[in-house]
Design a protein around this nucleic acid. Structure first.
Lengths: 335, 335
DNA sequence: TTGTAAGCGTTATCAA
DNA sequence: TTGATAACGCTTACAA
């Protein structure tokens, strides 16, 4: 069951490989008879062009590379879902790598991908990434790049993110309108772009209702599970907030558990949350309001931008940053 | 910033491409001086062999294909995590496709992958797949195959699954030991292999404690969200179970919500559950016991089997099915 | 309308 | 110890 090649067809039909090649791609300069002959034989023998040979010839692979911190994370797996959907429709393959929040691993992944001659790269930066030379490097090589969600101001490229400002604003406003004044904000590391956007949304809502911003109510938290517990207990103890606004499902659940464990009265809680836990937020008591990251749409949009760039190769196109609205599900506790 | 090739090195150093090639791979028949010269220059110019050219030459791609029903599913994204970990360590790339539970899409994915000349395929069958000709086809082409989780008896190949029998047995036993007698089992479609394994585990536990098996307590449920609700309400109404054992996190949460909504007393509930919701099961009231599918280990094991097969090409190796134990977290409600 | 030949980057065979 | 050449599968000038 070895795969059949153009050469096999040529031999069988007593033609040259070039004639067969042209016939297969429907070139106008080929006799209709010959064309039909070739096409029928190819069909019969279940011929498929060898994509590796094509890649070598044309110096492209019809594959795109995706680098995410962790695949097993609702947000990223949803995003990959969106990416795969677009790629499949447009005849591209998706090659996946994880950086595991490591800068070194991310560099290595990039190397692999450019070595593999992917036609473009979609990346969400690792938590440790502070320099973007590796990204500039692939840009210099002419490989199109779209950065999504974990973006950086240092790299000039197309970007896609959730509208974190809007989500944070709406969520904070909801808490204020339900009577809360001391709203703790437990969030991701301060150097992430999204962290800042959320903080600004939070601040803007406070400002609108003339509540002074108190930085004692804000806590930045790394990705280690241990960090979270400490930070949460500490802010609950020392600041006595009357609501909590957390920046991830993990932080949301940890703070929820902390509230329960301490028997503290926190009737309102809001979380930036991933996809799967959506079904659970309203089952908790008090129920969690959620700000759902539009992960699928982000992946889809990023992939579309990338493939458009790859296929049009508009060198004049200006880079842009697209913000996708978050979906805010507000729930008030029935105190 | 075009990539540098062996030819460039040869020209620069006034050598032939074959000499350079040999020097780079450290062939013993090359003068040490020359070798050093070449290696240093290659290093300096940041030379990397073109994997596509290698693939064409060696008729392999150092890439494996993965087909799963849905990426954005905790179980599968965890499994892909395991797959990627192994693949990365062993220098393989992972190309991802989703079947979206569609047989046609699965066929198409397989076509793409063999067309791409992947060195092997990892697949978890779609819910609609009832025939395995497409898999036999790739086996005929000599492409190694490992089926994981959603397996089929019709295909003869290496397989990796969770030990669903053991998990279901332990969970059911736990419910029995906490005093339950009418344990409803809400599970996946009856033709899936795992569904049957779980049912057998459930039955075995009942048998051990002399509780007669009552098929009225068992409900099979498709992947449509609508199916679930109906089935759950119906079994709660008509059968008045005193415990529920569900086969997925979705079913678990839906039944939990149903119990709450109806105000029914179901103090014990157990679920086969994915990864992320783990953190939430104990926060519910009553808490859910969980049977965690060892998704990462399944992916890892499957990938290892596949790469071993690819690299050893032992044609004499008998196929085997590996069962990975589930992790059972038992929680009793404090009635 | 069809064929010949070169080339994509690499390695293997054979010759020098 | 090194070099010339063919080959992997395909496309495309250029020739016929």
């Amino acid at each position: 069951m070895e795969a059949i090649t153009i050469k096999d067809i040529a031999k069988a039909l007593n033609l040259s490989t070039s004639t067969v090649s042209r016939a297969l791609r429907g070139s106008y300069e080929i006799n209709n008879e010959t064309k039909k002959l070739v096409l029928e034989y190819a069909e019969k023998m279940n011929y498929h062009p060898n994509p590796i040979a094509l890649s070598l010839k044309e110096n492209r692979s019809k594959a795109i590379g995706v680098i995410v911190p962790e695949i097993a994370n609702n947000f990223f797996s949803q995003a990959i879902n969106g990416i795969e959907a677009v790629a499949y429709d447009r005849g591209y393959h998706v090659v996946i790598f994880q950086s595991h929040e490591s800068y070194e691993r991310e560099r290595s992944n990039i190397q692999h991908l450019v070595g593999r001659k992917v036609d473009g790269v979609l990346i969400s930066l690792s938590g440790q990434t502070t320099t973007v030379e590796h990204l500039q490097e692939i840009q210099k090589r002419g490989v199109p790049l779209v950065v999504f969600d974990r973006i950086s101001n240092d790299i000039i490229s197309n970007k896609v993110i959730a509208d974190n400002f809007q989500g944070a604003y709406e969520a904070t406003e909801h808490l204020i309108l339900s009577g809360r004044k001391r709203i703790a904000h437990i969030t991701s590391p301060s150097l992430l772009y999204t962290t800042n956007e959320r903080l600004e949304g939070y601040k803007a809502a406070l400002a609108k209702y003339n509540i002074p911003f108190d930085e004692n109510l804000v806590r930045y938290c790394g990705f280690e599970p241990e960090d979270a517990k400490q930070v949460i207990f500490e802010v609950l103890e020392t600041q006595k907030p009357d609501a909590i606004f957390t920046a991830s499902d993990r932080l949301a659940l940890d703070s929820f558990a902390a509230v329960k464990a301490k028997g503290i009265q926190i009737p309102e809680q809001v979380a930036f949350i991933g996809f799967t836990n959506l079904g659970v937020a309203h089952l908790l008591d008090p129920p969690l309001s959620t700000i759902v990251q539009p992960a699928f749409a982000i992946g889809k949009t990023a992939a579309e931008m990338l493939l458009d760039t790859i296929e049009n190769k508009q060198s004049n196109a200006a880079v842009k940053t697209i913000k996708i609205p978050t979906e805010v599900n507000l729930r008030t506790s029935s105190e």
